[in-house]
Computed example of a mutant assay.
Amino acid sequence: MDDRQHSLLTAGKLRRELSARNLLRASQGHLHEQTAGSTPSILYAPEDDGTHGNFLSASYRRILARPAWAARLEKAYTSSRLVPRSHDRRRAELDCAVSSDALLMNIFCYPGMTRRAGICALLGVAPGLRPEFGVRGMLPMARGEVDRTEIDMRLGDLLVEAKLTEGGFGTASRERLLRYEGASTHLELEDLPRGNAGFAGWQLIRGVLAAAHQEARFVVLCDDRRPDLRDAWFRILVAVRSSELRSRLGLVTWQEVAAAAPKSVAGFLASKYGILGR
């Protein structure tokens, strides 16, 4: 075990750890079910008392009280077919124990979180801003098209891409990338990392282009135990042409957020996700 808390993990190893951790947690009094497979996904469900096992109670109450936030709870779980009796009810993505969107909302919907000095300093935002989740990027493309792909969170001028156990950031062909206005202006295409299907780090590339288009900042929020995600982000940064744009791009870890969070949130992150503040 190193001074960053645990041994570094791949996406699969972290998924297995969180599956085991949440199966134990859920069996101690939360409504839940699990998918089939060697590494089951744990799906929590809303409780009769108005709580939800995948959320801090205080965060969940605030989510339910704000229609724009509550709408995120309706996003369908794409692997419902792997759940026994999959047709008996509708499962949601944010029911899943390893949902990075649920983790993001647990933290930033918590009462007073965006007024905390440590959190604001970490993210470089003014106190008291209200988070927006699932914001459309609205990136201009060739032939008048617009990319409406979601950005996980916006907080003032800060755009956030959140990751937890996801395998990576996707790929895109050169042809697809060049359909985006400003792609060759803001990025040195030959310096971008390549995968078998084209340019690697596609979600990160779009985040950079969104920051450029909106004159905003863009931060990747990921687990300190995932060096592969961190390294993927740094490979994109190398290809950003402008030092001014590069200065608006950054990386923050869940562990750093946990260190700046109140004890109730930090304890939840430690027990449910194994995320320890540093």
Rank of each mutant, 00 (worst) to 15 (best):
N106Y: 01
A68E: 14
V220K: 08
L129P: 09
G156D: 00
G250T: 06
G156R: 11
S7F: 14
R62F: 00
D191H: 14
S7I: 14
E244T: 14
A270D: 05
G137D: 10
G134N: 09
L73C: 06
G207K: 01
A70Q: 13
F133M: 08
Y44K: 03
R206N: 02
D191T: 12
S247M: 03
R225A: 13
G201N: 02
V220Q: 13
C109S: 03
A68K: 15
D152A: 07
I63Q: 01
C120D: 00
A232G: 11
S86V: 02
D95E: 14
R230D: 06
S19D: 01
F268V: 06
M141R: 15
S242D: 14
A162G: 02
D2P: 13
S57A: 15
R25V: 06
M141H: 08
L269M: 15
P67A: 05
L204M: 04
R66Y: 03
Q203V: 08
K75C: 07
R91T: 06
L164N: 13
A70V: 09
G156C: 08
D3V: 09
D228F: 11
A239N: 09
V238E: 03
L159V: 04
K272F: 11
L73K: 06
E190W: 02
E93P: 02
V160D: 01
T10N: 10
R90A: 10
E93N: 14
H32P: 08
A210E: 10
F199M: 02
I151V: 15
A258T: 04
R16G: 09
E161V: 04
I151R: 12
L221N: 00
R154E: 12
I205W: 01
P262I: 04
D228H: 14
A92V: 05
A121K: 14
V160M: 11
T78N: 12
L251N: 10
L9F: 09
H213D: 05
A200W: 08
A68R: 15
H6C: 09
P140Y: 09
C109R: 00
H213L: 03
R154W: 10
L123E: 02
S80R: 13
A68L: 15
A200T: 05
V220C: 13
G53N: 11
Y77D: 03
R226P: 04
R89A: 04
S7V: 15
A126H: 06
G124R: 08
L82H: 12
A172T: 05
P131D: 02
A183D: 01
Q5Y: 13
R21C: 00
R179C: 07
R25A: 12
A197H: 10
E93G: 15
T149G: 15
F218Q: 03
G112C: 00
L229V: 06
A117I: 08
G118T: 03
Q203R: 07
W254C: 00
S27G: 14
